[in-house]
Design a protein around this nucleic acid. Structure first.
Lengths: 258, 258
DNA sequence: CGCAGATTTGAGATCTGTCAAGGGATGTGG
DNA sequence: CCACATCCCTTGACAGATCTCAAATCTGCG
């Protein structure tokens, strides 16, 4: 019988995502494991990265929830994305050195980290793995694209429903079971900062969804009650979360060099 | 006397940006030139990439303006970013194969393109160049971050002013002269789609800025009249556009393998 | 218990969207 | 050359969405 103290065992979320790509072989996964030897536990509500800080390590979320955000001098805040297990923080922020965003945990979080140069060293020995990580970065950028359209072109209820469905799909994909992928440790203030609205309006919008029995609030957690209807409500198109395989010529090119 | 038919000679914008990085040597630039041999002229208002289309080539904008955007079935549209000379379209969209965004020209555009596998082949011979391109991708992601906060957390006038200043800074950086970097070939509908507001409100907001003599509309072009006051109006912080050098360990690591 | 943080609700002000209409510039065909 | 269509900018009026201010409730915690 397996002993899994956390819902998702460390590293498995990242493995799960890369396995879907069907691109890396055993030596790649081995190299990844070697890269991610370190483990760090962080409490909820803590900073992982401070805005404006120089970054020397690339972090990988192994378990827990975090947010990446920007703040204004006057206190306004915009959450750029939610970081879930298997997400890499600033794959090339390392190249840029300075982070102009902050990272804060929403729950206790387990992190791994590696220095930028390690990844570069890996490039010559495990090019497919480096490519796969770049592919993860590409997925992150697509989600950011969708976040722009969500905030820019959707009404409040549609916007909130859309975020909920995205989070649900992402959680499912990394192996969370039926119950766990519907429970979000999100405060309504956090929700408001992610969706670009006031916390008062976030509450009203949430209440409205709750009246329609699409969501509920239990024990400080947001709970999705009817994902299908939520998806319909916001005309959710999962295209931007899909994980297509790499083109053949890329396969060929990396196959040689491996 | 130089013969320069276009304000920015082909390829120079990309060169200019990479030179600022002070990271690539002559052999890298040579490899870049070889990569970007093709040239394609596209009229204004044309598609370069259609939404949902499979992409097999990575495009680089050599001259002209284009937009990257997403549309909804009901006609709503959100512009994700403006593409200027030296910008690379979907550096790793190639990895993801399918583009879930469209690219459309605002002016006549000159493009270069190369197949994804070429870049991978380059990785072993010119790792610094590939790194530098990734660094450009990182800058793009930062701009997208800022776009999210702009749309999510700024009022209409502040939002518009902020976009204007960003475009100004980007144009300056790639070598446009004083006059040229203040003239934008933007329709107010385009502005509205970028800023996430209705075209009517975009017009009112623009008029309001024009009344304050911050901008003007001449000959179908938006013209910035007072950049300093625009920057003050939106508390513009250029941090996210800065181009820090790569960390030392990255230098060291790539120096060896070159 | 008392505090701190989170949710919830109301009321009024403000912002923004929609609908509608007019004007100016440009291009096309007769 | 004119008539006409098209595209874009502009404005007004009104409806609706959203923000701010304010206050009440609730919950977990020391």
């Amino acid at each position: 019988m397996k002993q899994t103290p956390t819902p998702v065992t460390p590293r498995s979320a990242l493995h799960t995502r890369l396995e879907e790509l069907a691109f890396c072989d055993e030596s790649d996964f081995k190299a990844l494991d070697d890269l991610l030897m370190t483990r760090e536990e962080v409490d909820a509500g803590q900073w992982i990265v401070r805005e404006g800080e120089d970054i020397e390590l690339t972090h990988v979320v192994m378990s827990g929830w975090a947010t990446r955000y920007k703040t204004f001098a006057d206190g306004r805040r915009q959450i750029l994305e939610f970081l879930l297990p298997g997400d890499i923080i600033g794959l090339y922020t390392v190249m840029l050195r300075r982070a102009d965003f902050g990272i804060e945990t929403l729950t206790p979080v387990t992190l791994s980290a590696y220095p930028a140069a390690s990844l570069l060293a890996l490039a010559s020995r495990n090019p497919r793995l480096v490519f796969a990580l770049g592919w993860l970065a590409g997925q992150g950028e697509r989600r950011l694209d969708e976040h722009v359209t969500r905030v820019g072109r959707r009404g409040a209820a549609e916007r909130m429903a859309h975020l909920f469905v995205e989070l649900y799909v992402r959680l499912r994909r990394i192996g969370f079971e039926r119950g766990e992928c519907r429970r979000f440790p999100l405060t309504q203030v956090v929700l408001a900062d992610a969706l670009g609205m006031s916390h008062v309006h976030a509450n009203r919008t949430f209440r409205s969804l709750a009246r329609d029995e699409l969501v509920d609030f239990e024990n400080g957690c947001i709970v999705l009650k009817d994902i299908m209807r939520l998806a319909v409500r916001c005309r959710f198109d999962p295209g931007y979360l899909e994980q297509p395989a790499a083109p053949d010529d890329v396969h060929a090119s990396l196959g040689e060099s491996a």
